[in-house]
Design a protein around this nucleic acid. Structure first.
Length: 578
RNA sequence: CGGGGCGUAGCGCAGCCCGGUAGCGCGCCUGCUUUGGGAGCAGGAUGUCGGAGGUUCAAAUCCUCUCGCCCCGACCA
């Protein structure tokens, strides 16, 4: 491609709208342009990257026997009503009506559509197992789209669905996908980590997320540095602390704590550690009913765990009004003592605490030397808090560490959740009908591109890993003589003939402009052609990432580049075999 | 959904408080010179000041409404 004829609108200045590096660089390198909040056009350069990622994903999907199809973007409300997701999905589901006022939505995911296809077409166990996938644009009306392609409302996703006749087969399929995902992310040149994840409302038996490690990641994970254990904090189990030896308990005591509404206030006022405080969170669990959850002051409640324990799907904190009505105390001063009419759950950490501090159920009062059982009843003990750095690993007991990650893939073993609701069944060898066992497997294509930039850039711009680079080499004629022009043209032809994806910067620009654009775009190899070099019969090849330079006679450049590109592509493929 | 901020030339911004000819830098066009890390000189084009309504002799500027965008938060007591 000749830059003079290409549509690669690079920007000299940082656009005001972009926060994170990947978003800024995608805009500046002319890869994407915004159309509306969370909605982007992919310009030629961006599309090339997307296509390369898609190709890798396709190769690995096909390799594990998944077959590609394409489901529609628009799907009828009826299917979504069958699984109740028409209501559950909430505002994130983009709904619209056709001219006959029939309800439709833009697919945020395709379990319903694929399950419908399955139940119409598949009858017999002989047709199983079956894995289908597509690469399709999805729509989710995110609360707050941000960071460019990282969290957008319209995005490209690879979604695969597996159908098995039994649990063992489904597990096998799940494992095959897990392995395929590892290969995909290795091949795209990303540093990633599979982590145990919550199955969320999608439900099911097991789930893993694939996290690209990056400080700008929106997800928090905990990992055990000495074992493969890693989990999303939403999911990570917290090991209960060892039981305490019974000891002499101090008598309950009231203390005046004016305006100390938060744990922080209270600690400052009483000069104590947050770990001595127990906060009482109230969730509305039915109309006019609240459930209290006791969490140590320095811990964070994990609503997903509480939700799962209570068997609810939308847990919300009770309003201050409701809390005040039921407990007769203002929020900030509510505690479990004397609240026998409210169901109280307590996090396991509380069991190891004695003589702690809770709200006193009157304004500006807290209680000291409170002890569970002696002073109040706990209805249920459990793991209700979020894991944090330093907690013991559930596998080895070593202290866990935390890291930020970008979720680029998520796999679920669904079980029969959708097949049962939608009547997707098959007949076994004995003629009995069973709901098919499903799995679903997603990869954010655009998000991989963004994550790759987060991991591979410097102050000058992007440093693409070879397998997903939009172009493999870029020729920079940095002086304007006829000799340089001819040498550039000749090299360009040669590289094209050898199937190297090459950009020729034939614009009438000064060297500096070309250097800066090439660095920003991030082509892995830059070939610099100038009069100085030609006089010595050399061209300069620069490795974008390392900055290393090689001087070569013009007639050796093509072979060198061809070899280097091939090596890098082979290396990325080999990595996944290890 | 709540709070804050911003919409002025393709991009980045000033002007708005205190109403009176719409500006700056970059980019763009023409010409000449230049050409190994975002060139110099000369000349030039470009705006429904996000939109609607209002106040006023006069509105980018004041008032009301509206749309779009950005950031933070969305209940951890």
């Amino acid at each position: 491609m000749r830059l003079s004829q290409s549509f690669i609108p690079t920007m000299r200045q940082d656009p005001g709208e972009a926060e994170v590096i990947s978003h800024r660089l995608m805009l500046r390198a002319g890869m994407i342009r915004k159309v509306a909040t969370g909605i982007y056009s992919y310009l030629p350069l961006g599309l090339r990257v997307i296509r390369k990622i898609e190709t890798i994903v396709r190769e690995e999907m096909n390799r594990v026997g998944a077959q590609e199809l394409l489901l529609p973007i628009l799907s009828p409300a009826e299917l979504w009503k069958e699984t109740d997701r028409w209501d559950f999905y909430g505002k994130e589901l983009v709904r619209l009506q056709d001219r006959h006022d029939r309800d439709f939505c833009l697919g945020p995911t395709h379990e319903e559509v694929i399950t419908d296809l399955f139940r119409r077409e598949v009858r017999s166990y002989r047709q199983l197992p079956l894995t289908l996938y597509q690469i399709q644009t999805k729509f989710r009306d995110e609360i707050r789209p941000r960071f460019g392609l990282m969290r957008s409302r319209e995005f490209i996703m690879k979604d695969a669905y597996s159908f098995d006749r039994d649990e063992a087969g489904a597990q096998q399929n799940y494992q095959r996908m897990y392995d395929a995902y590892c290969r995909i992310f290795s091949r795209t040149g990303l540093q990633f980590r599979p982590v145990e994840a919550d199955t969320g409302l999608i439900g099911g038996i097991s789930s893993h997320e694939f996290m690209v490690l990056a400080n700008t990641g929106e997800e928090l994970i905990v990992f055990d540095p000495d074992s493969p254990y890693a989990a999303n904090v939403e999911r990570a189990e917290v090991v209960p602390p060892p039981a305490q030896e019974p000891s002499e308990l101090k008598p309950l005591e009231k203390v005046s704590t004016p305006n100390a509404k938060s744990v922080e206030d209270l600690c400052a006022l009483l000069n104590i550690e947050a770990s001595r405080v127990v906060k009482t969170l109230f969730y509305q669990t039915a109309e006019d009913t609240i459930t209290g959850v006791l969490i140590r002051g320095d811990h964070q409640a994990n609503e997903i765990k509480i939700q799962r324990f209570l068997g609810l799907h939308d847990l919300t904190l009770a309003s201050p009004e409701l809390v005040a009505k039921i407990t007769t105390a203002p929020v900030g001063f509510v505690g479990p003592v004397g609240l026998s009419h409210v169901r109280i759950l307590a996090d396991n950490a509380i069991a190891a605490l004695t003589d702690f501090i809770v709200g006193g159920n009157e304004p500006d009062v807290h209680l000291l030397n409170v002890n569970a059982t002696r002073d109040f009843a706990v209805h249920d003990w459990g793991d209700f808090r979020q894991a944090q750095a330093g907690d013991p690993s559930p596998r080895t007991g070593n202290p866990l560490q935390t890291a930020r990650g970008i979720e680029v893939g998520h796999i679920f073993l669904l079980g029969t959740k959708y097949s049962e609701k939608m009547g997707a069944t098959f007949l076994d060898a004995g003629g009995d009908s069973h709901p098919v066992i499903m799995g679903c497997y997603g990869i954010g294509i655009g998000r991989i591109a963004a994550a790759a930039i987060e991991q591979n850039h410097d102050e000058k711009g992007i440093c693409w890993p070879m397998p997903i680079a939009p172009y493999q080499a870029q020729i920079l004629p940095v002086t304007s003589s006829e000799a340089v022009r001819l040498a550039s043209e000749q090299l360009y032809d040669e590289l094209c003939q050898h199937n190297i994806e090459v950009l020729l910067d034939d614009r009438n620009e000064r060297g500096g402009v070309k250097f800066n654009d090439a660095d920003m775009i991030g082509t892995p190899y830059h070939i610099i052609i100038g009069d100085k070099g030609l006089a010595r019969n050399t061209l300069e090849i620069k490795d974008r990432k390392t900055g290393e330079k090689v001087l070569l006679p013009p007639d050796q450049v093509t072979a060198w580049i061809k070899n280097a590109v091939t090596q890098e592509l082979v290396r990325s493929k080999r990595k996944e075999k290890e």
